[in-house]
Computed example of a mutant assay.
Amino acid sequence: MKFHLLGEETYIEIDVLHRNYPNSSDYWDRNWVSSKLKIEIPGYTVSFVADLRTDELSDFVNKLKIMNKNMKGKATLNNLDGYLEIEGEMNKLGQIIWTAETCYPAGYGAVLNFEFDSDQSYLETIIKELDDILVAFPVLGKP
């Protein structure tokens, strides 16, 4: 199950593969998901497997929904392990300015920082893709 962030000459694909600890009863363990990240920007192609959390994805999509409804604001995807940080902020023209940072291996590996722009018309698709992922991989339990 994939979601995409697209911009001029920028392609980010995050494919959520499976739960890391599907039989755990611990909130923190059971919400880890293995994901494959693929990023293409001018001069770089990055592809690696990263552990994300369903609550991180849920927080991100909720912020995107607010930004889409209000046609302003900011949405951030913060990854606990530090593999990926993405922030999108909508300007007054409806353009979203994205900043992103990847680190692989997480915490001590190579770091890639980049920015790109996209049109707000992509938000509906991103929201739908994330909602579909969260149906298949819902946040389980409470912290």
Rank of each mutant, 00 (worst) to 15 (best):
W28H: 04
F137M: 07
E40V: 15
G107K: 10
S35N: 06
N91C: 02
D59I: 07
V46I: 15
E40Q: 14
I96E: 00
Q120T: 05
S58W: 11
E129V: 02
S47T: 07
K142L: 12
E129F: 07
R30Q: 13
V49H: 12
N79A: 04
D131T: 02
D59A: 13
P105Q: 12
F3A: 01
W32K: 12
F60E: 11
K2C: 02
K38V: 03
S34T: 14
E85P: 00
Q95C: 05
V139F: 05
N79M: 04
I97E: 15
W98D: 08
V139I: 03
K128F: 12
K72S: 14
Y27K: 00
K63L: 09
E115W: 01
V111F: 07
A110S: 11
V16K: 04
Q95N: 11
Y21G: 03
T54N: 07
N23W: 10
N62C: 09
K36P: 00
N62E: 15
L84H: 00
L64M: 10
E124S: 13
R30E: 08
M67K: 10
M71A: 09
I66F: 08
I96A: 00
D119K: 11
D29T: 00
S25C: 09
Y21N: 11
V16T: 04
G141A: 03
G73M: 05
M71W: 09
V49A: 10
D81G: 08
Y104F: 13
M71G: 01
K65L: 06
V49G: 08
G94F: 06
F60L: 13
K128P: 04
P42W: 00
G107P: 01
L64G: 05
K2V: 03
S34C: 09
G88Y: 10
M90K: 08
I86L: 14
W28Y: 08
Y83P: 01
L57V: 03
S118E: 09
R30A: 07
N68K: 15
G82M: 12
M67Y: 10
E85S: 12
S47G: 05
E9D: 14
Y44C: 09
F137I: 01
Q95R: 12
K142W: 11
N113G: 01
V16H: 04
E115S: 13
G109Q: 12
S35T: 09
K142C: 06
S47H: 02
K63C: 02
Y122M: 13
Y21P: 00
N23Y: 12
E13C: 14
S118D: 03
Y122W: 13
K2T: 01
E115G: 09
N79V: 01
L6N: 10
K69C: 08
K36S: 00
Y122A: 11
D119S: 10
D51S: 13
I86Y: 02
E13D: 13
D119Y: 06
E40N: 14
G43M: 04
A50W: 11
F116E: 03
P42E: 07
I39S: 04
K2Y: 10
D117M: 14
D55N: 11
L57D: 08
Q120C: 11
L140H: 02
T99S: 15
K74D: 10
N31F: 04
A75H: 10
K142S: 13
W32S: 06
S24L: 00
S121G: 01
A106K: 06
V46P: 09
I14T: 01
A106I: 01
